[in-house]
């Protein structure tokens, strides 16, 4: 299976391990990722909060490039890129006048027929059977809190993916690794997103609530599918611990890393060694138990 691939900026920077693990696992699952040639930033938060047309044009440029390459579908692992590309597609579909204007700005034509999918949707396409077939490690020591964050399921009127208030697709997927999933309350609550640098205080408050709720419900790992969420929950966890004496640590894995572990890839291949909060101890225990069998 071949699919268009829009990695987005974070996957070679702050979310390097997400980029690394996505490439590694999909290779293992026989999915060929065809990069959108010369892709550029989707505009991210900073685009849409300052200029509607700038945001539309930056995303539309990538849609036009992908079309020219003959791609029918693009997979965007970053939840924020996924959202921006999908929102742009829909808004340009709703308004032919806006589409024409944006085409003028990007100096390119757009059929606007390309499908944009997130990482869970790509796994659904591949099928649980394929993961089961390639599975080498049962992650039964893990109690995972699956964190959707904001942009995997919202805006629902555009994405039409899973459910905007009680989604379950993430948990279904994680269960196929042998990990236990916990029921918890904060799987859709915002981590503070792009306020990480200018209003760190807000991010520390909001992210702490997410970590606390996960631990309160018995989780020993958080699983995410968004670079922004990961950096707020993993990298900022140091700030949270510093501001709250007695605060316990909880490791945060990307969904691709979790799947990678169950496919038998190691910490280094998956970039798990690049996290702020260490995960190794838990994994070691799991591996030792498997080997002892």
């Amino acid at each position: 299976m071949q699919i268009g691939y829009y990695p987005g900026c974070s996957l070679s920077g702050t979310a390097k391990e997400y980029g690394k693990s996505v490439r590694a696992i999909f290779k293992q699952l026989d999915v060929e990722l065809a990069d959108v040639t010369d892709w550029s930033c989707c505009g991210a938060t900073s685009g849409h909060v300052t200029s509607h047309k700038l945001a539309m044009a930056l995303s539309a440029r990538n849609l036009a490039l992908a079309e020219k390459q003959g791609l029918k579908e693009i997979f965007a692992p970053c939840a924020a890129c996924f959202g921006r590309l999908a929102v742009t597609k829909q808004e340009l579909k709703n308004s032919p006048a806006l589409k024409e204007e944006i085409e003028g700005i990007i100096e390119d034509k757009l059929n606007n027929t390309i499908e944009i999918i997130n990482i869970i949707q790509l796994f659904q396409k591949i099928g649980k059977e394929k993961i089961a077939e390639k599975k080498v490690l049962d992650l039964k020591n893990l109690k995972a809190a699956c964190y959707y964050g904001c942009l995997l399921v919202r805006p629902f009127n555009i994405l039409h993916f899973d459910d905007a208030e009680q989604p379950t697709s993430f948990e279904e997927l994680v269960k196929s690794t042998g990990a236990e999933v916990v029921e918890w309350n904060y799987k859709l609550e915002c981590c503070g997103a792009a306020h990480s640098l200018p209003r760190k205080d807000i991010v520390v408050d909001l992210s702490k609530k997410i970590l606390d709720d996960a631990m309160k419900h018995g989780a020993n790992v958080l699983v995410v599918a968004c670079p922004m969420c990961h950096s707020n929950l993993d990298m900022r966890q140091k700030n949270i611990i510093k501001a709250n004496p007695g605060q316990k640590e909880i490791p945060v894995l990307y969904l691709s890393e979790l799947i990678g572990l169950c496919l038998g890839l190691d910490n280094k291949q998956l970039g798990i060694n690049l996290h702020t909060i260490d995960f190794n101890i838990r994994l070691k225990k799991n591996v030792e138990e498997e080997v002892a069998k």
Binding site: H48, R154, P155, F156, A164, L188, C190
Partner: peptide, 11 residues
């Protein structure tokens, strides 16, 4: 400016 764009309201 503090709206984080989480889209809970829109939903």
């Amino acid at each position: 400016w503090l709206c984080a764009g989480c889209l809970t309201c829109t939903t």
